[in-house]
Design a protein around this nucleic acid. Sequence first.
DNA 1: ACTGAAATCTGTAAACC
DNA 2: GGTTTACAGATTTCAGT
Lengths: 156, 156
Amino acid sequence: MPYDSSKLLDATNLAILRELQQDARLSYSELSRRVGLSVPAVTERVRRLEDAGIIEGYGVRLNFEALGYGITALIELSAPPSRYPQVLAFCEQTPEIRESYFVTGDSSYVVRVVARSVQHLQEIIQRLGTFGNTRTSVVLSSPIIKTSFDLEGLKR
Amino acid sequence: MPYDSSKLLDATNLAILRELQQDARLSYSELSRRVGLSVPAVTERVRRLEDAGIIEGYGVRLNFEALGYGITALIELSAPPSRYPQVLAFCEQTPEIRESYFVTGDSSYVVRVVARSVQHLQEIIQRLGTFGNTRTSVVLSSPIIKTSFDLEGLKR
DNA sequence: ACTGAAATCTGTAAACC
DNA sequence: GGTTTACAGATTTCAGT
């Protein structure tokens, strides 16, 4: 339920979010030690951040390379609006497609995919190609993937 | 330390990863109930997945819109190799840049940025523009952002 | 809103199969 | 690798401020 209530972003809650970004499996007792409040107070604050929709959930950061998915690519797809539902359905049922963005500019969709080999990537490109023109950029390296966001700018 | 040891990806560990992807704050006792092993067995398995580099860490999924960063954009940057170190340093110190990819094709970099307003986005684009030509695609919607990966394909 | 304390549940380490 | 046991630590609930 993302309705703001900007008071939720006081210095203590920003500290809580900072800690959870670095290690979401921190115990409440350790978290409360770090932010200087009692355990029930911190537990309640986290619950409210979840209820407000600021915290959407907790995830594990997986190393796709170690899982055998050594290739990442960004694929731009230009497709007529009439095919959007089909494109969406395809993206949803294809696990290799990690995210899709509907963007301004000459390409309608940009998707990020992971693949086990160039053959595997080619398959995905060909399937996307049935919806429209594609333009693929293979990722050579990902110098920056930030796992936490500096929330300092949110202080009022 | 990502050296595989592919035996780490048996059905039980895939189940553990599946559960942690959905909720990384699950207790070990709940996790062990779900995968049908004792608590110490599951704790040890998670420790090994971490040691092998398959699990890189645990994070909180934040709603950037609720945090006031309502705009996402993909910016392609073409810059000469001599400027890569500067570009990298800029990306690293700019919190709004969430990830950067070095890619094949005519653009050397693709970055994903979040911004609080179009003015804010413009600032970032202008700063990136000091390194080379930019091409910005504003994200209109993100129909798919997957928070978990179907690991079924890894079964041997 | 936060604290502190009690009851219950969970994590950790050791001994063993 | 796995389990069981036993102790230490963490979570939840609630009365009090």
